[in-house]
Amino acid sequence: MPNRLDEVAEVFQSVEPETRLELLLDYSRKLPPLPARLTAQRDAGLHRVHECMTPVFLWVEAEGDKLRLWIDVAPESPTVAGMLAIVVAALDGGPIEAVKNLPLDLIQRLGLADVLRMNRAVGIGAILGRIKREAAALQPSPQSLTPNL
């Protein structure tokens, strides 16, 4: 598991399950908004992760040799938004190879399996798998895709 995810997991594991949910709620508010160039694609229904019952839109891109992750989650799904905000905080802007170590069982590592149960975990595992597959297929890009940041 990438170091930053290790650190987050350690914090989650060190507190009571109820507090883990509060931490997750905090993260859910931190998912960065989509850049303007991607909102039109989302509104056209492109880049949706269909394995997930929750509407989730995902872009996995290379910016030079860095990984860029853009994820949009419906406001009705703070649990999914929180999980993915943790992934974005850990991997976005870092080396593309780091994705290899992204664990599909992140929910278990964060100690959230009991409070979320498997039903809720379904979609999240699907999204993590998709991030890994798409990142594995990325070619480093020479120019920045987000010059207006």
Binding site: L21, L24, L25, S28, P75, E76, S77, P78, T79, V80, G82, V115, L116, R120
Partner: peptide, 9 residues
């Protein structure tokens, strides 16, 4: 709700 945190939002 389905989502355990939705009420909190």
């Amino acid at each position: 709700d389905e989502d355990v945190l939705l009420y909190e939002t």
